[in-house]
C-alpha cells in the first residue's frame, strides 16, 4: 500500500518534469519577447534589452528551466509577468475560490446523480429508467457555454432573479455562486448518473441479488442492504475522476461569470503567455490528476476487498 503510493508519486514527479519541460519549450516557440509584455508595446529596443538582461532572460533556455525547477521544488514558483507579483500570491487564492465552487458543485451533483442513477438502474428498461437516461443524455449534450448563455438569458436578463456576475467583490455571496454551480451540475450530472445506473443495473442482475429477492426479502431491504454497497463502487471512482475534469470544466464557467478562480487565471495566463503562472497551474493540474487517481484506486480497493495491491 505505502509502496503503491510512493510509486504513484514517483511517477507523478516524472510526469511533472516532462509536462513542465514541454510547456517551457512550447512557450519558447511563441514569437515576441516577454519584455514587450512587461514594458508594453511602446517601449524601445534598448529598454527591452536592458529589462531582459536584468531579469535573467538572456540566459540559455536550459539554465532558465533548471533554475525554475530548482526554485519550484523549494516552493518558489517565480514571478508573474502579467501581474508582477509572485505566482503564489495569485495562485492560492484563486485555487481556493475554485475549491469552493467545486465543493458546492459536488455537494449538489453527487446526491442528485447517485439517487437518479440508482433509481434508474433498479428497474432497467422501466419508464423511470428511460426518462432519467434520456434527460441525462440531453443535459450532457448542452455544452457549458451554451447553458451559461441560456441561464443568463433566463435568470439574469429575463426574470432578474440572480446576479449576472460572480466576482464576489463585496465578500462571499452564495447567490452569486448559484449560476456557475448550476451550469457545472447540469453539464456533469448526466454522466455520473449514467455510470451509476450502469453499475446498479449490473448489480441487480447478479445471482445473490436475485436469490435475495427470490428468498422473499423485502425489496427495499435488498436494495439498501445488499445492492447499494456494491453498486456504488464504480461511481466512486468516476466521481473522483470528475475532480480532475472540473479543473478544465471551470475555465468556461469562470470566464462567463467573471468568477475569480483557477480556470480564469489559467485562461488569462495562457492567452498572455504568462509562463510561470502557466507552469504553476500545470503542476497543480498534474498533481490533482495524480492524487485523485491514486485516491480513487485506494478507495476502490478499500470498498472492494476482492482486490489487493500487487
Amino acid at each position: 500500500m505505502l509502496f503503491f503510493v510512493i510509486r504513484r508519486f514517483g511517477n507523478m514527479a516524472l510526469i511533472m518534469v516532462l509536462v513542465s519541460l514541454a510547456v517551457f519549450l512550447l512557450l519558447e516557440l511563441t514569437p515576441g519577447s516577454v519584455a514587450t509584455k512587461v514594458l508594453g508595446p511602446y517601449s524601445s529596443e534598448e529598454q527591452r534589452r536592458l529589462w531582459l538582461e536584468a531579469h535573467g532572460y538572456m540566459e540559455p533556455l536550459w539554465t532558465r528551466y533548471g533554475s525554475w525547477l530548482v526554485n519550484f521544488v523549494q516552493g518558489e514558483f517565480g514571478q508573474s509577468i502579467r501581474f508582477k507579483v509572485p505566482v503564489s500570491d495569485v495562485l492560492w487564492p484563486r485555487l481556493w475560490n475554485t475549491t469552493i465552487l467545486g465543493f458546492w458543485t459536488f455537494a449538489i451533483m453527487i446526491p442528485v446523480s447517485l439517487t437518479l442513477g440508482v433509481l434508474a438502474g433498479m428497474r432497467e428498461g422501466g419508464l423511470l429508467d428511460r426518462a432519467i437516461s434520456q434527460i441525462s443524455v440531453i443535459t450532457t449534450s448542452i455544452p457549458e457555454f451554451a447553458s451559461a448563455v441560456l441561464f443568463s438569458s433566463i435568470f439574469v436578463f429575463g426574470l432578474k432573479w440572480l446576479p449576472g456576475t460572480s466576482t464576489m467583490s463585496d465578500g462571499f455571496d452564495p447567490l452569486q455562486l448559484l449560476l456557475p454551480v448550476m451550469v457545472l451540475v447540469v453539464y456533469d450530472f448526466g454522466y455520473v448518473t449514467r455510470m451509476t445506473r450502469a453499475s446498479m443495473a449490473e448489480v441487480m442482475t447478479t445471482p445473490y441479488i436475485r436469490t435475495a429477492v427470490l428468498k422473499g426479502l423485502p425489496y427495499r431491504r435488498v436494495i439498501l442492504r445488499h445492492a447499494l454497497r456494491n453498486a456504488l463502487i464504480a461511481p466512486f471512482t468516476i466521481i473522483m475522476l470528475q475532480i480532475n475534469w472540473l479543473l478544465s470544466g471551470v475555465i468556461v464557467v469562470e470566464f462567463a461569470f467573471a468568477y475569480k478562480g483557477f480556470g480564469a487565471l489559467l485562461l488569462e495566463a495562457a492567452l498572455n503567455q504568462d509562463i510561470y503562472v502557466i507552469e504553476a497551474c500545470a503542476m497543480v493540474a498534474v498533481f490533482v490528476a495524480a492524487a485523485t487517481q491514486t485516491l480513487a484506486d485506494i478507495g476502490y480497493t478499500y470498498l472492494n476487498p476482492r482486490i489487493r495491491f500487487k
Binding site: V156, F157, K160, L162, P163, T165, T167
Partner: peptide
Amino acid sequence: SAQLAAFASGQ
C-alpha cells in the same frame, strides 16, 4: 458581456 450582466443586476 460580463460587465453588461453586472450593470443589469446592479452590481
